[in-house]
Design a protein around this nucleic acid. Structure first.
Lengths: 207, 207, 207, 207
DNA sequence: CATGAATGAGTATTCATTCAT
DNA sequence: AATGAATGAATACTCATTCAT
């Protein structure tokens, strides 16, 4: 009876082992230098086993992206948890993304990698699960906007569009952090980020 | 007499050959698969020669980025050429970026690559020339905003900040094109882009 | 049952294959021209396999050095085997080194390479095993000297120092073999070597 | 009239430029990484010119070896200059070699390189000039020994042999400096060196 | 005399993936 | 379900040398 379950549990454990190793390497060595062999060594599993649990190297990172989005989602949720004011919710949410990009820079890199790499290489399945996680984050923003509209704080006919716009902009802004001091003159990047968030919210604020 | 000049011209030709090859490969095969060997083969030059003209593989792509920014700059300039209305100028400029990202998708990819790749690997020199090109584009936006403020169309104390914010957002938005139909529900990505531009402009529009 | 063992045996065989190839190339082409690719071709194994069995090119040669020191040690041991007279032991030992440098000139070259190359590039581990082998050879000399002192044949307060001095000198002398006929006028290098050994022994002989 | 001479002088200057560059690179980057291209860049001369003044890369280093031997010779001469006591002369000469190996470690490396590399690759001409320099150093030792014999301090029938033996031993000993602390237990390598010199001199001292 | 562009085989090393056991 | 040995093309980059100008 319990054998099947135990097996299943062990399988999950192995998967987690692999992902842990991949994540650690990703943070330490970066994307291109994280090879399957290194992952297998770190995970204390054979290369063959890696390929039993994951079809591809890419699929490992797809899982990591899923994880990343999950963490991001939780970050945003806990940051906006008790907040009722709609404007504040957006600000807190944006801030959560910023903090996430710093504290979990590895996960941010994964997300960024898949966002900025020109091709889609995942199977439909994988893509769907990833997208659904992303959709949850967007839905959170949408809901806030809708509530703000009801309260009269915002004016926006397409909250879904705004959500996508909001997130895409935030991501684009965070990406430019490295240009700070060269193309972007701001001394304090966080100030610039906050300025940007203010603009984004302003764009749908009622007059 | 003209020997020196001819030589110089030939040198420039070779450089161009190499860049052409690199650009073509970049478009066809993407970044990671564009190797120096392939470039040399496509350019019909020896590997050694590639390294005679460029110190690094990275320097080749840095040159491409510079080229890309130049083309983008020209695009924007010609799109906003005779336009006097400030709002229209921003719209036309944003549109030029969008068109650029489609018509010169290879160059967009280069720019995107260096924007989204986690590390800076260029020498200070190269970085400076690249940044200066980028700064020109931002300055164009800044100027428009300042004029709009004078005309009373915009309210903005920090046009420089807005310029950076504007461009970063546009870039982030264009990046999400590939998510169209999955995370982003919009059928027509261009409509979504225009919607976003409207929001960005709205964010500094006088009330 | 014996599967594991057979596997292990095969692994050892492969290692040996690689070392054989490396040794042969070393002898034929010298150090700098012995590349990993050539080794792999000669060993009839893929390049990747070479790197499966050895972390580095250097590690291959480190193994060869270890082998070389082992062979040398055995040579010396068997040459001094039944010899009881201390002076004779030193002579026979020195002679064994000379013979080794001729019969196993490839191994001598390896030892010489690591002795004369300006940098140390091995990991501490590898260095330790190598050094311990070398120490055994030196210890053999020391012991002989100590016995000679007890017998009153030698006068030497620091047998360890003498051992090092003895070996270093022998090595330096053998190195000059190629200068025979130019800087070194001796017709018969072996005579010169024997003359030198006599001097070295004389230097601690009791009067 | 003076044109020819000026030309000749300039030619010599160029040669010196090249050798200076090669020497500097040798010290900084080591043997294998000192390429002709780098030399040409450092010497501010074209690659082609390098090949006008030197047939080979090897010939450049051969010249350096010649230089090195010259410097060493001068070192030894000035160290033994006013010294009349034969034993002291040998000690001072040996010491000069030791100091040379430290202060002019680049030259020592060159000499060592050609001594320890298994093949002779120079033309007979080059070899002869190099050897003649080496012979002068050996002759200096020989002379001292002969004088010592006359004075009754030394007993030695073949001063030439001893000179070669003396130098080869010294060289072998200095080579082992890097083994200090591992195979060679001595804390202070210089003490070990002095001990060795004492032994070498002892080996021909009259009783 | 001097230049410097061009060569292309060569370097050590890494890689994702396969497959017999 | 797991292993790990094997592959070999691929990577960025260097090199000594040549030769037309």
């Amino acid at each position: 009876m319990g054998q099947k379950e135990r097996r299943e549990r062990e399988k999950q454990q192995r998967r987690t082992q692999i992902l842990n190793a991949a994540r650690a390497l990703l943070l330490k060595e970066g994307f291109n230098k994280t090879s399957v062999n290194k992952i297998s060594k770190k995970a204390e599993l054979s290369v063959g086993s890696i390929y039993f649990y994951f079809k591809n190297k890419e699929e490992i990172f797809a899982s990591l992206e899923h994880e990343g989005l999950e963490i991001l989602h939780e970050h945003v949720l806990s940051a906006t948890g008790g907040v009722t004011d709609s404007i504040d919710r957006l600000k807190k949410g944006a801030d959560a993304y910023y903090q996430f990009s710093i504290r979990h820079s590895d996960y941010f890199d994964v997300i960024n990698y898949f966002l900025s790499s020109p091709r889609v290489f995942f199977s439909e399945d994988v893509n769907r699960t990833i997208d659904s996680k992303g959709a949850m984050i967007l839905e959170n923003i949408s809901a806030t906007v809708r509530r703000g509209v009801e309260e009269g704080v915002f004016e926006e006919k397409f909250p879904g569009n705004f959500a996508a716009f909001f997130w895409a902009s935030l991501h684009g802004i965070i990406q430019t952090r490295k240009l700070q001091g060269t193309m972007i003159e701001c001394d304090d990047f966080y100030s610039f980020f906050q300025y940007s968030v203010d603009r984004l919210i302003e764009s749908i604020s009622s007059r």
